[in-house]
Simulated assay, not measured.
Amino acid sequence: MIHKREFLRRNLPYDGRIKLASYYNSRHVRVPVKAAQITKAVRWHASLLQPVTGIDPAQLSARSLRAGGAMALLAGQCDTNTIKLLCRWHSDAMMRYLHQQSLPIFQRLSSKMFNNGSYTFLPEDWVPAAAE
């Protein structure tokens, strides 16, 4: 929306190709947002919250937002194909980001798989005897 407005102000057609990660300064010059700027902002805010969260700001970066967003989607029970699409992953690389954070989610799933320990075999199913 901000880019559209700036183009209208200049009486230029807007084709939608301008990257969203940019802004216009006081002289109406488009300035791209750099990862270093985002990292600096994330770390500054994390340092304010460190007494509450216990998270070391030095461990956070702009890339943390991608993994954090994907984890939030996974925790919200979003399927992995949708996460890949939204985060623009073309492979299963996102699983590297998610596997460590997903343990609580998978623990809940395992209890569902076994119906909290209450399960039976179907009448026509049988369990083979143990090998001797």
Results as ranks from 00 to 15, higher is better:
Met71Lys: 04
Tyr119Met: 11
Lys40Thr: 05
Thr120Ser: 14
Gly76Arg: 06
Glu132Met: 08
Lys40Ala: 14
Phe114Gly: 12
His90Gln: 14
Ala131Ser: 13
Asp56Gly: 04
Leu12Ala: 04
Arg108Pro: 00
Trp89Pro: 02
Ala130Lys: 15
Pro13Arg: 02
Cys87Arg: 04
Met113Gln: 05
Arg66Asp: 06
Ala70Val: 00
Arg10Leu: 10
Gly76Lys: 07
Ser110Ala: 15
Pro13Thr: 07
Arg66Asn: 05
Ala21Ile: 04
Leu49Val: 03
Ile83Thr: 09
Tyr119Ala: 13
Arg27Val: 08
Arg108Val: 06
Lys34Leu: 12
Ala36Gln: 10
Glu132Thr: 12
Tyr24Asp: 04
Arg63Ile: 01
Ala67Asn: 06
Ser61Trp: 02
Pro32Gln: 06
Ile38Lys: 08
Phe7Asn: 00
Ile83Trp: 11
Val33Gln: 07
Ile55Thr: 11
Ser47Asn: 11
Arg108Lys: 15
Arg108His: 12
Arg9Lys: 14
Gln59His: 14
Asn115Asp: 12
Pro57Ile: 00
Asn115Trp: 03
Gly69Ser: 10
Ser111Asp: 11
Leu98Asp: 01
Pro32Thr: 06
Gly54Asn: 07
Asn116Cys: 11
Arg63Thr: 04
Cys87Ser: 15
Arg5Ser: 09
Ser110Trp: 04
Gln59Phe: 11
Met94Phe: 15
Cys87Asp: 05
Phe7Leu: 00
Gly68Ile: 01
Gln101Asn: 12
Arg30His: 02
Ser47Glu: 13
Asn116Phe: 14
Trp44Gln: 12
Ala58Arg: 15
Ala46Leu: 08
Cys78Ala: 15
Leu8Glu: 14
Asp125His: 13
Ser64Arg: 08
Arg30Asn: 10
Pro51Met: 02
Gln77Thr: 09
Leu109Pro: 00
Tyr97Lys: 01
Phe7Tyr: 14
Lys4Cys: 05
His3Asn: 03
Ser47Phe: 02
Arg5Met: 10
Arg43Asp: 03
Val42Arg: 08
Lys19Gly: 13
Ala72Met: 12
Ala70Asp: 00
Cys87Thr: 14
Arg5Gly: 03
Pro32Met: 07
Gly117Gln: 11
Val33Cys: 09
Ile2Tyr: 03
Asp15Glu: 03
Arg27Pro: 01
Leu122Thr: 08
Arg5Pro: 01
